[in-house]
Design a protein around this nucleic acid. Structure first.
Length: 719
RNA sequence: GGCGCGGUAGCUCAGCUGGUUAGAGCGCAUGAUUCAUAAUCAUGAGGUCGGCGGUUCAAGCCCGCCUCGCGCUACCA
């Protein structure tokens, strides 16, 4: 796996419209950081690339909401990202920005290259156009009524109230533009599409066999099952051309020399991954290196660390772009992680259900490695996993404090006590009880051999992206160290066989030295402190692990005889119950805030903002009627739709309603309801729906029918 | 509904291309120990590997059906 001369490792670019939480960390940043630090320790050339993704309509919208400019938004989050990453000790070689001039140029050049090669297909479609603002409207700029929850202020791409994904064509009137509040009209606009279908065969070979141009490219069996599965699912579904440009005002201009390019920007998903390239260019320029050695050389292994939501972009779309260009290498692996849940619930930014990195590093600046450790332990490598504060406390206290820190401490204390911190001139051949078995005898050399095996196991784990497994071997080495002391009881033996104690303690110190290197990718700060305690030169991540393996292979001591070590120091302190209680309280208050119980208390609530003012005329075209549900049945092949027959008094109708997840057909028969009666008919799943059932939704997303008093006449006008 | 990934001890998770009595850490019980942040070490109790059926000399691992969780997708007037 380390057969490449150099490596280019990327972490997904965080989107600059919100802070980072532990889910981000576990998904794409910590694992990449561990991997990169490992590569450096193995003396590999590596560039670790990341940056802020700063374009797209969501940022403009957020700016508008906060009453500041998009530039202020992205500057704010760029600064916050840098601070969070630095404090979490994510060791990017460069954290770049897609708003930079270099990136704009790089993305435009890529676009022009593909254009000149004839890789794009130009296609016209009808889209909403704001005649007052004189521009086409991005999905985000169109507001209309959400067809799912009837929120009057749903965006063209998503309804923020019910969270459903939309397209502008699905929005119901009144449709208006956020730019001018006017009603947009449909006009024809053209965009450049990348015909992904053209690359289907190539992508299939790449994903399924790990082949490129008929030649071996990577070991497909080394990819995670869920990554390949997701890609195959897309391939089997058939790829379709994807628009690479949008009508936006916050983004990278489509090169102006192209016809019809006015007002058009590059699609954020075209722009963002190129951010990896531009960031590499900047870094290479800063370091006097050639960026092409990384992006356009077969000697380089490209690895993208992402969350599972980014799989298809990094495994199919971006590779198709790179392949279309022709000069670029493709990723040799995309070790995507799954999602991290928090205390039994999905992490949610909008519901504030998260542990925010900027808050954590501010509150607990001395507990960075503890969080890193727990993240690794619960890393969602192959399935969703769970972070709990209780688990965090437990893993820190029992494993980091009791096992690791305690072992290091007892070695330091004993060595200082018996030898004044100076490594004794032990006799190589003397034997003592082996650390892995109290029945066996072992010499200093035997112990090095045992450690060596563990180190090899550790390397193997990391190279197959099994970081949890690697971390476990680290803890096993620490456990072996504890056993070594326990079995030999130097505190007793010192009185009878001081020479044996010399050999045994010397071995124990080697354990600590090995741990100081192996800890580095996971617990960088802890590794530093261990080095300091041992009075060894600090780790600079320049081949230390490679050197360590060399020494172990020839049984050379890592801490030589007569070396003077430093003073003992506690590596970790216990996590007190109060800290956990405080964090749990914080989450609980979030929970309270999100539920309706607090609405009555008048505390801060999650009321949806009032929609734009409607005139009476706006309202008068709406015809609401009372009705009764006569029959209800589950729509076949649908998860959400119920097929209702309702009695409007003057007629009976079929209405399809997306409430199957909330009500069973049986329980709603006979229910009296309100119906939007003059809604244009719409066909769904092959059946025409005539009207819409009105529902009230609470803060938790639960639905309730809106009903007239029992026995009220069907067909009554509601006004 | 379609597709993908999962459902393994109380908890968090390992189990490679099917092969002896299914593993680890934490928690729990008992014992040992004191150099160490009530730390450490030993031993032990805990699982019909989501359910049913099938293939096989042999299945947690393969096949079929069902069920639950998550994701993508269709759908939500």
């Amino acid at each position: 796996m380390l057969d490449k001369k150099r490596f280019l490792v990327t972490s997904a670019l965080p989107y600059a419209n919100g802070p980072l939480h532990i889910g981000h960390l576990a998904g794409a940043y910590l694992s990449a950081d561990i991997f990169v630090r490992y590569l450096r320790l193995m003396d590999k050339e590596v560039a670790f690339i990341c940056g802020a993704d700063e374009h797209g309509a969501a940022i403009t919208m957020r700016a508008k909401k906060e009453g500041i400019s998009p530039r202020e938004i992205i500057d704010k989050y760029d600064a916050q990202f840098r601070d969070s990453f630095e404090k979490m000790r994510i060791s990017f070689d460069i954290f770049h920005r897609t708003s930079s001039e270099l990136h704009h140029r790089t993305a435009q050049e890529m676009f022009m290259d593909l254009y000149k090669k004839g890789e794009f297909v130009e296609q016209s479609t009808a889209q909403y156009y704001d005649t007052e603002a004189e521009q086409f409207l991005a999905d985000r700029y169109i507001i209309g009524t959400c067809p799912k929850c009837t929120n009057l202020d749903a965006y063209g791409d998503q309804c923020e109230k019910c969270g459903s994904t939309l397209s502008p064509d699905e929005l119901l009137p009144p449709i208006r533009s956020t730019l001018s509040q006017s009603t947009p009209e449909k006009r024809t606009t053209s965009h450049w599409y990348l015909p992904l279908d053209k690359y289907e065969g190539m992508l299939r070979e790449y994903i399924e066999k790990g082949e490129l141009n008929g030649r071996f490219h990577h070991d497909a069996s080394a990819w995670k099952a869920h990554v390949i599965g997701q890609c195959k699912s897309w391939l089997d579904g058939g790829l379709v051309p994807r628009a690479m440009t949008r009508d936006l005002d916050w983004g990278i201009d489509v090169p102006q020399e192209l016809p019809n390019s006015a007002g058009k920007k590059l699609y954020v998903w075209f722009d963002a991954p190129i951010g990896y390239i531009s960031a590499t260019k900047q870094w290479a320029a800063d370091q006097q290196k050639d960026w092409k050695d990384y992006w356009q050389s077969e000697d380089c292994g490209l690895i993208h660390f992402v969350g599972k939501d980014n799989i298809v972009f990094h495994c199919l779309i971006f590779p198709a772009m790179l392949k279309a260009h022709g000069d670029y290498i493709l990723p040799v692996n995309v070790p995507a992680n799954q999602f991290l849940n928090l205390e039994g619930q999905k992490i949610s930014t909008s519901r504030n259900w998260a542990v925010w990195i900027h808050e954590y590093v501010a509150s607990y600046p001395d507990r960075i490695d503890e969080l890193r450790y727990n993240m690794v332990k619960n890393m969602p490598e192959t399935r969703d996993s769970e972070f709990t504060w209780k688990g965090f406390q437990e893993s820190s206290n029992t494993e980091l404090v009791n096992n690791l820190a305690n072992f290091v401490n007892r070695v330091m204390v004993l060595t200082n006590k018996y030898y004044d911190g100076v490594m004794p001139k032990y006799e190589q051949l003397l034997t003592f009880k082996a650390s892995d078995n109290a029945e066996d005898e072992a010499s200093f050399k035997d112990e090095l051999e045992l450690i060596s095996e563990k180190v090899e196991e550790y390397c193997l784990c990391i190279e197959k992206y099994d970081f949890r497994g690697a971390m476990k071997t680290v803890m096993e080495i620490s456990s072996l160290g504890n056993q070594l002391l326990q079995f030999n009881e130097p505190w007793k033996l010192i009185k009878t066989d001081p020479l044996i104690v010399e050999a045994c303690m010397s071995a124990a110190v080697q354990y600590v030295a090995v741990l100081s290197v192996l800890c580095r990718p996971f617990l960088p700060d802890t590794a530093d402190r261990m080095r300091k305690m041992l009075n060894l030169e600090p780790i600079t991540e320049e081949g230390e692990l490679k050197e360590l393996r060399r020494k172990l292979s020839v049984f050379e001591a890592l801490v030589p005889k007569t070396h003077k070590i430093g003073e003992p120091e506690h590596l970790f302190t216990r996590i007190p119950d109060e800290m956990i209680a405080l964090e749990m309280e914080k989450l609980q208050s979030t929970l309270d805030m999100n539920t309706s119980t607090n609405l009555a208390k008048g505390e801060k609530t999650a009321f949806t903002a009032l929609s734009a003012t409607a005139t009476y005329d706006d309202f008068s075209i709406i015809d609401l009627r009372t009705a009764t549900i006569l029959a209800a049945e589950q729509m076949p092949k649908s998860d959400k739709l119920l097929k209702l027959t309702v009695d409007l008094g003057f007629e009976q109708r079929t209405i399809l309603s997306g409430i199957a997840k909330h009500f069973s057909p049986e329980e709603i028969i006979g229910k009296q309801i309100l119906v939007l009666a003059n809604l244009a008919p719409r066909k769904m799943m092959g059946i025409e729906s005539n009207g819409m059932v009105l529902m009230a939704e609470n803060a938790e997303g639960k639905l309730s029918f809106v009903s007239p008093p029992e026995g009220w006449m069907n067909g009554s006008v509601v006004k």
